[in-house]
Protein backbone atom coordinates (compact mmCIF):
# COMPACT_ATOMS: atom_id res chain seq x y z
CA UNK A 1 0.00 0.00 0.00
CA UNK A 2 1.35 3.40 -0.97
CA UNK A 3 0.74 6.54 1.05
CA UNK A 4 -1.09 8.92 -1.25
CA UNK A 5 -1.27 12.64 -0.53
CA UNK A 6 -3.80 14.78 -2.41
CA UNK A 7 -3.55 18.53 -2.73
CA UNK A 8 -5.66 20.25 -0.12
CA UNK A 9 -8.08 21.69 -2.69
CA UNK A 10 -9.62 18.23 -3.29
CA UNK A 11 -9.31 16.75 0.16
CA UNK A 12 -12.91 17.72 0.88
CA UNK A 13 -13.98 15.32 -1.88
CA UNK A 14 -12.55 12.30 -0.08
CA UNK A 15 -13.57 13.32 3.46
CA UNK A 16 -10.42 11.69 4.83
CA UNK A 17 -7.10 12.94 6.10
CA UNK A 18 -3.91 12.49 4.11
CA UNK A 19 -2.40 10.03 3.45
CA UNK A 20 -4.79 7.65 1.74
CA UNK A 21 -3.65 4.02 1.60
CA UNK A 22 -3.88 2.87 -2.02
CA UNK A 23 -2.61 -0.25 -3.81
CA UNK A 24 -0.80 -0.27 -7.13
CA UNK A 25 2.43 -1.44 -8.73
CA UNK A 26 2.73 1.72 -10.79
CA UNK A 27 1.06 5.12 -11.04
CA UNK A 28 -1.58 3.97 -13.49
CA UNK A 29 -2.78 1.16 -11.22
CA UNK A 30 -2.68 3.51 -8.29
CA UNK A 31 -4.86 6.09 -10.08
CA UNK A 32 -7.31 3.37 -11.19
CA UNK A 33 -7.61 2.11 -7.61
CA UNK A 34 -7.91 5.64 -6.28
CA UNK A 35 -10.88 6.30 -8.57
CA UNK A 36 -12.49 2.98 -7.58
CA UNK A 37 -12.22 3.96 -3.90
CA UNK A 38 -13.19 7.60 -4.47
CA UNK A 39 -15.33 7.88 -7.63
CA UNK A 40 -15.85 11.62 -7.18
CA UNK A 41 -12.12 12.16 -7.86
CA UNK A 42 -12.52 10.85 -11.40
CA UNK A 43 -13.28 14.19 -13.10
CA UNK A 44 -10.45 16.00 -11.35
CA UNK A 45 -7.91 13.30 -12.14
CA UNK A 46 -8.96 13.20 -15.77
CA UNK A 47 -8.52 16.95 -16.05
CA UNK A 48 -4.80 16.31 -15.57
CA UNK A 49 -2.48 15.59 -12.67
CA UNK A 50 1.25 15.46 -12.01
CA UNK A 51 3.00 13.47 -9.29
CA UNK A 52 5.94 12.92 -7.10
CA UNK A 53 6.94 9.38 -6.19
CA UNK A 54 9.30 9.17 -3.24
CA UNK A 55 10.24 12.80 -3.94
CA UNK A 56 11.00 12.30 -7.65
CA UNK A 57 8.81 14.64 -9.70
CA UNK A 58 6.82 12.78 -12.35
CA UNK A 59 5.02 15.15 -14.68
CA UNK A 60 3.02 12.71 -16.79
CA UNK A 61 4.50 9.21 -17.16
CA UNK A 62 2.20 6.76 -15.34
CA UNK A 63 4.50 3.73 -15.70
CA UNK A 64 6.55 5.01 -12.74
CA UNK A 65 6.95 2.11 -10.29
CA UNK A 66 5.42 2.32 -6.83
CA UNK A 67 7.01 0.43 -3.93
CA UNK A 68 5.37 -0.78 -0.72
CA UNK A 69 5.05 2.32 1.49
CA UNK A 70 6.02 4.71 -1.31
CA UNK A 71 5.01 8.30 -0.73
CA UNK A 72 3.00 9.57 -3.69
CA UNK A 73 1.92 13.19 -3.97
CA UNK A 74 -0.67 14.07 -6.58
CA UNK A 75 -1.07 17.66 -7.72
CA UNK A 76 -2.78 19.57 -10.47
CA UNK A 77 -1.01 19.14 -13.80
CA UNK A 78 1.77 21.64 -14.34
CA UNK A 79 3.37 22.63 -17.61
CA UNK A 80 6.32 24.68 -18.80
CA UNK A 81 7.24 27.30 -21.38
Amino acid sequence: MANVYLWSGVRALVAEENPLKIDGENLKELLDNLIISYPNLKAIIQEGVSFSVDNKLVMSSTIERIEENSEVYIFQKISGG
Binding site: W7, G9, E47, F75, Q76
Partner: peptide, 21 residues
Protein backbone atom coordinates in the same frame (compact mmCIF):
# COMPACT_ATOMS: atom_id res chain seq x y z
CA UNK B 1 -15.40 25.66 -15.12
CA UNK B 2 -13.34 22.69 -14.04
CA UNK B 3 -14.67 20.38 -11.37
CA UNK B 4 -12.30 21.98 -8.85
CA UNK B 5 -14.26 25.25 -8.82
CA UNK B 6 -16.80 25.56 -6.01
CA UNK B 7 -20.40 25.77 -7.17
CA UNK B 8 -22.24 29.06 -7.75
CA UNK B 9 -19.19 31.09 -8.73
CA UNK B 10 -19.12 33.44 -11.71
CA UNK B 11 -18.82 31.46 -14.99
CA UNK B 12 -15.60 33.34 -15.80
CA UNK B 13 -13.93 31.55 -12.86
CA UNK B 14 -12.83 28.30 -14.43
CA UNK B 15 -10.17 26.78 -12.18
CA UNK B 16 -9.29 26.56 -8.51
CA UNK B 17 -6.15 25.32 -6.81
CA UNK B 18 -5.37 24.93 -3.14
CA UNK B 19 -2.30 23.31 -1.69
CA UNK B 20 0.00 23.54 1.30
CA UNK B 21 0.45 22.01 4.70
Amino acid sequence: ARSSVPKDMHPNIVGYHESGH
